[in-house]
């Protein structure tokens, strides 16, 4: 039987399968139960064929109601898989540790704990040997942090990847160019700069917060690219 509204059986099959796939990939535990409930109407909705016979809406018979439910469920899949818990205390403690690290680095080595700046110091073309060596030690510390936390607590904090690899390469390039040109990132301008009450850093921080929020708004709410 042909599909409805310009959608053929193959396409509607593909839609339903894709949805099931997303459910499996992007959800866990409680989220999955909510989604199963959401998917239920799509897979069980009854519809009527040309002769007036009731047909159970199974794979390949997604009509327009099914599609509306589908797009609603799709949106829910995205929201449920992307939602993160509000963690004020954990974030505050993490932030204070970051602040402590910035203090330790300044109090002992006299260096600003700006990650983009520190990474820059170990990159060609011009390398200042003594600065590069302490920067490298700091970077090693950063790289050791996750394995250390894993050994101590047995787990790592949850993380959900959103962007496509191609997008990540572009993002990485833009972050590198931007922080290199603007002399700082979230740590150098955002934490250390604001802690020194630097106007330069305040302007940088307001600027990158703004363009970042605008970017997320465009990607999520205008383009709707959530894959």
């Amino acid at each position: 039987m042909a599909g409805f509204h310009g959608i053929n059986v193959d396409q509607s099959n593909a839609l339903v399968n894709r949805m099931g796939q997303l459910c499996r990939q992007r959800t866990t535990g409680a989220n999955r139960q909510t989604l199963t409930a959401l998917m239920y109407p799509v897979l069980t909705l009854d519809t009527v064929d040309a002769t007036g016979t009731q047909l159970p809406l199974k794979y390949g018979r997604v009509d327009c109601i099914g599609l509306i439910v589908y797009s609603y469920a799709y949106q829910k899949i995205f929201e449920l898989s992307m939602q993160t818990e509000f963690t004020p205390l954990l974030s505050l403690i993490g932030g204070m540790l970051i602040g402590l690290a910035a203090l330790v680095l300044m109090a002992t080595n006299g260096q600003i704990a700006g990650i983009s700046g520190i990474v820059s110091q170990v990159l060609p073309p011009s390398i200042n040997r003594s600065k590069a060596i302490t920067s490298a030690a700091f970077i090693v510390g950063l790289l050791v942090a996750a394995p250390a936390v894993k050994i101590m607590t047995g787990t790592l904090p949850e993380a959900t990847m959103v962007a496509h690899p191609v997008l990540l390469v572009i993002a990485g390039l833009v972050v590198g160019l931007g922080t290199g040109t603007g002399n700082g990132c979230t740590s150098g301008h955002g934490v250390c700069g604001l802690s020194r009450f630097s106007t330069r850093s305040l302007i940088a921080t307001v600027t990158f917060m703004l363009t970042a929020a605008i970017t997320v708004y465009i990607v999520r709410h205008i383009i709707g690219a959530v894959q």
Binding site: L90, G94, I98, A113, A137, F138, G141, L142, A145
Partner: peptide, 14 residues
């Protein structure tokens, strides 16, 4: 040590 504390802070913070 500073790098290590920084990284642990980042992990805890989210």
């Amino acid at each position: 040590i500073a790098g290590l504390i920084f990284g642990v802070g980042l992990l805890f913070s989210g």
